[in-house]
């Protein structure tokens, strides 16, 4: 009766196997739910912008809310210079948010609970931010590893520490999102198993706990998407302004 709580994270193939130059590119449940999430985002904006009014409709208000929210967040964390990256950050935020939210539905699959997905996203940001930093500051971007006001004999030590701290960014970014989603969904499954195992008389206790947990998970799903976007903005800010 008690199901394996980790079973929900299994990636399996849907439909026929596809091979492209020897690489397996067949559709999996993971990629299916990514496609669903992207489709939901497109649907959200398509419905909101179908007929634009000065006095906006319900979905249009939501669209504008999301736009304002992200635009304000970028302004707060990375300043006006980061405006050209608005569309990227917005896409990133909405993609992670919808992946997290779709994953909360029963029988669905949480793509962000796979570390390879979050690590790929974090690596894209890490490499992109580094490239932006070198384009904006030239070789001077390397000064990010040399904080000012440090005695010379400490410099070799500090530079190594700074480089490690810089390299740890994609790890901490990806592990945070992955661990939160994995832990939350495992907990939900475990408490769901308790409800079945304890039956009608005592089962309502873990059931009420599950309800509270679901509310927490919705908060976490939003918060993690937000934190991911905020941290990308902070890294972008470091690359654009370099005030260490």
């Amino acid at each position: 009766m008690a199901e394996n709580p980790m079973e929900q994270f299994e990636v399996f193939k849907i439909g026929p196997s596809l091979l492209l130059n020897g690489t397996n590119v067949s559709l999996t449940n993971s990629s299916l739910f990514m496609i669903i999430s992207v489709f939901l985002i497109i649907l959200f904006f398509a419905l909101g912008t179908r007929k634009l009014n000065i006095i906006p409709g319900k979905i249009q208000v939501l669209n504008e809310l999301v736009f304002d929210f992200i635009s304000k967040m970028i302004n707060d964390t990375a300043g006006l210079d980061a405006k050209p990256y608005f569309s990227f950050i917005l896409t990133l935020f909405l993609f992670i948010l919808s992946l997290n939210m779709v994953g909360l539905f029963p029988y669905s699959f949480t793509v962000t609970s796979q570390i390879i997905v979050t690590f790929a996203l974090a690596t894209i940001i890490f490499i992109g931010v580094t490239i932006v930093g070198f384009i904006k500051n030239g070789v001077g971007f390397l000064k990010i590893f040399v904080p000012s006001g440090i005695p010379v004999f400490l410099l070799p030590l500090i530079i190594v520490i700074e480089i490690i701290s810089y390299l740890s960014r994609p790890i901490s970014l990806s592990v945070r999102l992955f661990a939160n989603m994995l832990a939350g969904h495992t907990m939900l499954k475990v408490f769901g198993g308790f409800v079945v195992a304890l039956g009608i008389y005592v089962g309502w206790l873990p059931l009420s706990f599950s309800i509270a947990l679901i509310a927490l998970e919705i908060l976490v799903a939003f918060l993690q998407a937000y934190v991911f976007a905020v941290l990308s903005c902070i890294y972008l800010n470091d690359a654009l302004h370099m005030h260490h």
């Binding site: 707060d76 490690i164 701290s165 901490s172 592990v175």
Partner: peptide, 29 residues
Amino acid sequence: LPSSNNNPIGSAFRISTELVASLFVALFI
């Protein structure tokens, strides 16, 4: 302006992984 920026849960999540991530990278190197 700051509303959700100083959300305590958000910052707790943020800090907890920072410590481990650098250690992981350093040990790998």
